[in-house]
Design a protein around this nucleic acid. Structure first.
Lengths: 260, 260
DNA sequence: CCTCCACTGGGTACGTTGTACGCGGTTCCG
DNA sequence: CGGAACCGCGTACAACGTACCCAGTGGAGG
């Protein structure tokens, strides 16, 4: 019933054999689009705008990319390539997953617009595939494939959830037009009203914490990440000795959040 | 610099005092929009389409809602109300969080389009607020506020990550035009090529598992969820027995993330 | 070498979107 | 009983993705 004619971008070749040499390239277009999205958001990365960025006509882009949605897929995969996973199943799974999580977070913070692209259907680009192989390879010797998937869902979910909040609050600050220190004191009138009403004690605590954080974002992230890794460690057989999760007190010393 | 005139939807009243009685209502419009989005996706929920659904003119909607984005916020908050959290800090935190996770997953599966709405800035609607109070209240007696936030990030992240994959694969099946059983055998030509190439052994295992799952989606979800709850249990002080609501202990001094 | 035609970049145009603006009618306040 | 405040809604516009068409171009077959 549906269009069975659909073929993935990754199947159709960039360049045909015949004809004059193309002036541009998929990589160049993708790069330009990412540049615009980084600066002004994904919505600003219009076909016309991208074309202008590289000095081309709007319709020329369609010689390289079947549609804008497909271009976004290209962009997303390009971003996956920014996460360094070289030599990834290194033997120390805890180090590997930490490096991956840090890389993923850093990438999201560099390109916040990625949080708005829905992967309603997954497109397995080359970078994405490499990432899967390397990352899932880390725990593959220890657990079944679907247990592995579950654990990675936890890890990815934590990172994405956390970073989404970071992006949101950064966006809120930007929109309010205030500097970050100003925003600390005087938040939006709506949030202020909620807090003053006294009906939402826990929400109030969250707001207070956000205004006067006693942990830097990085420390906060690292702290929660260790929690997640502990969870993963618990799910692994004892044969998978990495740096063994020590007792709580010691762990607090070595990788717990530092006081500022 | 930015528009300091911005006010949240939740601040501007639905109805003014004066003038003729409105024929429609925000709730009615929101409901219609959700109905359309459920059936045909969020993109299909055009202002004109929504207006037609309730028998109104397109521009009439703007008497009730400042913009389409704001309407989407209304829709999202309406969905939060579908998650049943009545009597939520019940004393048994494990039961509470399980019920919440199940409810969240069920809601997402009922309204898959919610995965595409970016919460680039969080809008604290009434349902969202109630959810925060009740849900965060579950662990509030045991941990500090930002530890609580971290743990909820893990939980939400797991649920959302898992459900996103469910939605994706359902979407893929629907788009391929094949029945689910047919899809098991013959997947997309691109994925097929990747598998046959032999260069992606782990990816291949994932595909195989997806075709011949030995666990139902529900069981898979429940299994991973228990892992997450175990992780949360490990982060809680020992006084927080699942069945007994303990009062807050001073353990926070030594256990919490460096609170002072 | 020439010839052919698959390819190139790009201009024009169409359908659809969100929404600014203004109109004539309706309801409530003073 | 005005008149201000609000209603539903038709028109209009800018911006979007992209279908279609064109004149040029350069590699392959003769």
């Amino acid at each position: 019933m549906a269009d069975a004619e659909y073929v993935s971008i990754w199947m159709r070749p960039e360049r045909p054999a015949r004809g004059p040499k193309p002036v541009y390239s998929r990589a160049q277009i993708t790069e330009a689009a990412i540049r615009i999205a980084d600066a002004e958001g994904l919505d600003a990365a219009t076909m016309r705008r991208i074309a202008a960025e590289i000095g081309a006509g709007a319709m020329s882009l369609y010689r390289y990319v079947p549609s804008r949605d497909n271009l976004v897929e290209l962009m997303a995969d390009r971003l996956m390539g920014e996460i360094d996973v070289t030599g990834m199943p290194s033997g120390d799974w805890r180090a590997d997953l930490t490096r991956y999580a840090d890389g993923l977070r850093a990438m999201w913070l560099r390109h916040p617009w990625i949080s708005t692209v829905q992967r309603s259907l997954p497109s397995f680009g080359p970078n994405q595939l490499l990432l899967i192989e390397r990352l899932m390879g880390v725990l593959d010797p220890f657990v079944s494939i679907d247990e592995n998937l579950s654990l990675m869902a936890v890890l990815n979910g934590y990172v994405e959830g956390t970073v989404r909040e970071e992006i949101s609050s950064a966006e809120e600050v930007r929109r309010s037009g205030l500097s970050e220190s100003e925003w600390m004191e005087r938040s939006s009138p709506y949030v202020d009203r909620l807090v003053k009403s006294g009906e939402y004690p826990i929400f109030t605590k969250i707001v207070m914490e956000a205004r006067q954080p006693h942990l830097s974002r990085d420390d906060q992230f690292r702290y929660g990440l260790q929690r997640v890794l502990d969870c993963i460690a618990a799910a692994l057989p004892s044969t998978a000795g990495s740096a063994m999760p020590a007792h709580r007190e010691e762990r607090e010393e070595q990788d717990g959040p530092g006081h500022r």
